[in-house]
Structure formats: C-alpha cells, structure tokens
Design a binder for these strands. Structure first.
Lengths: 136, 136
DNA sequence: CTCTTTGCAAAGAGTTTGCAGGGTG
DNA sequence: CACCCTGCAAACTCTTTGCAAAGAG
C-alpha cells in the first residue's frame, strides 16, 4: 500500500469537501481553497481527490457538464442534478434495499455500488423562470 | 428549429446505435462504421450523437472511463457498469414509478429524467477472475 | 534521512468548432 | 438552387504526469 503521510493541503481539501453540500468539482475546490493556500495547485486537488476516492473517503457523483463532481458522503444516497444551473442536490434515497440482489440475479455480476440520479429543473431555476431551457 | 435533412451517415450511425446493446461511445461507433464508410469523420459521429440526444432519439448513459456512452433505448431503464471491463449492461429497471414524485416533493424541482446505474463486476469478469481488481 | 506530497507546466484524452466542399430536397 | 451535412484539422477543456524542491515521520 501507499504509506499515506499527513498533509495540511490534503486535510484542507477533505475538510472543504466535507463542509459543503455542493458536490464540488476539482476546480470548485481549488478556487475555494486558493484564498487560504495561494500556492495550491490544481494538480494537487486532482491527486488528492483520487486518493480520497481510492481510500473510500469520497465518491464521485458523476460528471456534470464535463466536470467530475465529488461527495464526501459515501453512504448511498441519490442526487438531483439541475440541468439548468448544474447544481447537484442530495436526495433522501428511496428505498433501494434489495434491488442490488435483484440486479445481481439478473446480470450474474456483483454490485459494488449504485448511483441514482434525477435530472430536471431545480426549485430555484423554476422560480427564476429558467426552466425548460432545453426541454423537448 | 433546425431543418433536419436526410443523411446516409446519420442513418447509419443511428442504426448502429440501435443494433447494439453495448451502449457505445462516439469512438466505438466511429471505428465500427469506419469500415463501411472509410471517409467517416469522428466529428460527424459526435455531431450526430448530439442531434440524437437533442431530438430524443438517444440518451447519454453517462461517462465510463472518461468516455460518454450512448443508448438508443430512451425508455427508462437501469444500467450495470462493470468497473472491471467497462461494459455497460441493460438491467430490467426496478420499479421506480412514483419515485419521481417523491423526489419532486423533496426538492421542489421538476424531474425530467432519472438514471439508475449499478457499478460492480460483471459475470464475465467474475468468471475470468478479474474481480476485485481495485476493491478496497 | 527516507519517503510522501507539492507546484509548475507540459502532455494527454475526449469533445467541440470553423471552414470549404459535397449531398439532399 | 438553397441549405444542411461532412471531412479535416485546429482549438478547447478537463485531467493526468514528470521532475525537482519542500514537508512529514
């Protein structure tokens, strides 16, 4: 294994990821921490995020608008992705217990994780009248 | 609106997408059609895939390994993504009816679509003993 | 002192875009 | 004939990587 040593920057990145519910991208975290760590490098953010995911301290929520978004909440839960503003909101996961088994029976594989995401227009965008921007 | 004209290449791309259950990426489709259309351009595949999605003739399954994967089956259904070989399999969708309403009530937004995907090791990889390649 | 982590910048990979020429109706 | 579609290649964006210097144990 890799002998992980303490690093002030890494701790700060993980803290920042834990203290937000925005499901930030690498760049979002970077610009947020850039003030506190002027010498922070974007590459470092990417490297640490990869470590978090490898260590199970974070998960990828998927890419939104071409950017990978991360979440420090690794417990299974669903997300609501606003196709209008790109926000990613947490959603109290519907009961998916037992579905894993169902899928395993159907595919013959082993489920390690699942990702449920809803795409639509968030309340804020609905209020701003930005909705249906690209609806059919 | 854009006046869509017929195009042999476009028809072929959509056909290829419809005749496979691999949920191919732009490049997968490109190399598959390159034999039949030696002068096919990758840019054309990208452009047409974007049209299909805009027209509702295809949906994006999400990105796997950095590549966007597409599906001509636009009816809601779940996917099983093998983290070992990158294959994307169709899964008979568990009953998610009513869940949209639940999410809308929780977020105050409007759900336009949902994506349920399971990540794990597929049967083929399990058999090949490639499993747990990157398990914790 | 040894090994991990970082900044910087260049390299990569995937996707998008502009333009001139060919195809469709 | 007008307008859409395509090939080609350059441009872009996001992410990864190599290397020498700085930090942690």
């Amino acid at each position: 294994m890799e002998a992980r040593k303490f690093s002030k920057k890494r701790a700060a990145i993980l803290e920042a990821l834990r203290h937000t519910d925005e499901h930030p991208s690498a760049e979002m975290l970077y610009s947020r921490l850039k003030g506190e760590f002027p010498d922070l490098s974007l590459g470092t953010v990417y490297r640490n995020l990869a470590m978090f995911v490898a260590d199970g301290d974070a998960v990828s929520v998927g890419s939104v608008g071409g950017q990978e978004r991360y979440d420090a909440v690794t417990a299974p839960h669903a997300h609501f992705i606003c196709s209008c503003c790109g926000r990613v909101l947490d959603v109290c996961s519907p009961n998916l217990a037992g579905v894993d088994r169902q899928v395993e029976a159907e595919t013959g594989g082993v489920v390690l994780s699942r990702s449920l995401s809803f795409t639509g227009t968030c309340a804020r965008c609905l209020a701003s009248g930005h909705a249906d921007g690209d609806a059919v």
